[in-house]
Design a protein around this nucleic acid. Structure first.
Lengths: 143, 143
DNA sequence: TCTTATTAGGACAAAGTAATCCTAAAAGAG
DNA sequence: CTCTTTTAGGATTACTTTGTCCTAATAAGA
């Protein structure tokens, strides 16, 4: 449903949302270690997100990545959109081009609610709100 | 959620369930044309399914693929299992190794029930029952 | 100003998946 | 029995995704 890359990206962004701030930037390497990921690869993902201004960055010693308060208000779906491009989430599970309620594929009605709910969740909740639940121990990022 | 290969396979199997019988075998090429797929690739998938006895085949002129009535009674999930191997369906959407109700990932509770429903649907309904709905025009295989 | 630590970015390598090709084996038809 | 049509299976190719490496740019601190 999501590519590995965008799973990583979501994890990294939530990690930043929980741990970083403009005065407490975090190096790619530290995030990579935390979420157990090859660090040059994560760096690439962060660069992509940085180009789209969803994460902020600063070079040099004491440099690193962080999320501005504004960025934290954006929906988590933005991250997925940037990494996976378009709507991988909207595609028919059986690959039918024009699957719809009018011409449903054989599993349409059992899958459609799943996809819709998931997409809505990512669309309507901000990065910050997901991060809150991690902070409160309601949800987890690793293990 | 499913690989392209297993999407093709599901489509092909349902096509066979709808159109074939032991006395009306269907050539790989015909199925490939129907579901718009490179025919040598589909042939490979059908061979794999045939090795696992979910589709039956016969060589030579008038040869082709078909489903026995017994095969039609097997759950559609079998097809997915054979092609995608293990449980791609059970993995955490965010890629967490040990995502569970005790240590839920940030989207666990919104996605988990729906994944379960989907899996159950594939597990509890036979190929034949999916095929029935296609025959009755309730669901569709192409377009 | 020089050194060092970090991100930026492009080129490249590896792995996995998707797709092709070729030859063999089987089975029906003449 | 031979020819043709079809599946079977292995080897190979192509493509996409994932991951690495190297150099440049930038910023902080000595």
């Amino acid at each position: 449903m999501l590519s590995s890359s965008s799973k990583y990206a979501v994890n990294a962004v939530l990690y930043l949302a929980v741990h970083s701030s403009q005065i407490n930037k975090i190096r790619a390497k530290e995030i990579a270690e935390a979420i157990k990921l090859p660090s040059p690869f994560l760096a690439k993902l962060l660069q992509t997100l940085s180009r789209e201004n969803i994460v902020s960055s600063s070079k040099g010693p004491t440099g690193g990545f962080y999320l501005t308060p504004e960025a934290q208000q954006r929906p988590l779906l933005e991250v997925v959109k940037i990494i996976d491009g378009t709507d991988r989430l909207d595609e028919c599970v059986l690959g039918l081009k024009k699957c719809s309620s009018e011409k449903p594929c054989p599993v349409h009605f059992s899958v459609q609610p799943l996809k819709k709910t998931f997409r809505k969740e990512l669309e309507e909740n901000s990065i910050a709100s997901f991060a809150e639940k991690v902070k409160s121990g309601e949800t987890y990022l690793f293990v």
